[in-house]
Amino acid sequence: MNEIEILWLPLVTFALSSSITPGPNNIMLAASGVNYGFCRSISHMLGVSIGFFILFLAVAFGLGSVFTRYPQPQTGLKYVGSVYLLWLAWKIATASTVTGI
């Protein structure tokens, strides 16, 4: 078996499990649909779909092997991602509540 045949099964498994699980993107889309309606949520749906496709391409073209060879960018992404998640958590924690529902 060549390298493409060996990596095909994990790639398909990743794509299938990522696309059907009720993750945060699906929850955000459901909330957007409830709050703004279907038509106003179409751009959100397209953004999630395009983002997933870009993630799928990055995995398909071997981004993991780049991080294996050069671990410094991955470490940097971990720190930047952690700071961003903390900032999002702070925004959520300090957001005003919606009344009248």
Rank of each mutant, 00 (worst) to 15 (best):
F67M: 05
N35K: 15
G33W: 02
S49D: 03
I4H: 04
V59C: 04
G76A: 12
N25F: 05
W8D: 00
L46H: 08
S41I: 04
F56L: 14
T75W: 07
L7I: 04
A31F: 15
F14D: 00
S41K: 05
V83N: 10
V59N: 01
L46W: 10
S19Y: 07
T94H: 07
V80A: 15
A89R: 05
V34G: 02
A60W: 10
T75Q: 14
Y84P: 05
A15E: 02
V80S: 11
A93H: 10
P24S: 15
S18M: 09
N35I: 13
L11K: 02
A89S: 14
C39Y: 13
N26P: 01
V98S: 11
A93Y: 11
L7P: 01
G64D: 05
S65N: 09
W87G: 10
G62R: 05
M28Y: 14
G81H: 09
N25E: 03
L9M: 01
S65D: 06
C39N: 12
G47V: 02
A58P: 00
V66W: 04
H44E: 05
V66H: 08
V83C: 14
F56G: 04
S43G: 09
T94Y: 12
V48W: 01
C39A: 12
V12H: 06
I27E: 14
N2C: 05
L46Q: 09
A30Y: 10
K91F: 08
V83H: 08
S82G: 15
M1K: 03
M28Q: 12
H44A: 12
S65C: 05
L85W: 07
V59P: 00
Y79W: 14
A15Y: 00
V34A: 13
N2S: 12
Q74N: 07
G37C: 08
I4Y: 06
L86W: 08
K78Q: 13
L16E: 01
A15H: 00
S17N: 03
N2E: 11
A58N: 04
A93R: 11
M1L: 11
L77E: 04
L46G: 05
S18G: 07
Y84V: 11
I42H: 08
I50W: 01
P22Y: 13
A31L: 15
S49A: 15
L7N: 02
L85S: 12
A89N: 06
I42C: 03
F61Y: 07
P71E: 10
V59K: 01
V12G: 06
G62M: 06
S17M: 07
I42K: 04
G76T: 07
S65L: 09
T21K: 11
T99A: 07
I101D: 11
I27M: 15
S96G: 12
A60H: 09
L16V: 13
E3H: 09
I101L: 12
T97E: 11
P22C: 08
G64F: 03
F52W: 00
F52A: 03
L63F: 09
A15F: 02
Y70A: 02
S32D: 12
A30G: 12
F56T: 03
I4Q: 07
L77D: 08
F52E: 00
V83K: 08
Y36L: 13
L11C: 03
F61G: 01
A31E: 09
G62E: 03
K78A: 15
V59Q: 04
N26D: 08
T94C: 06
A15G: 00
E5T: 04
T94E: 10
L11P: 00
V12A: 15
A31Y: 15
I54N: 02
G37H: 13
S96R: 04
G62A: 03
N35S: 15
C39H: 13
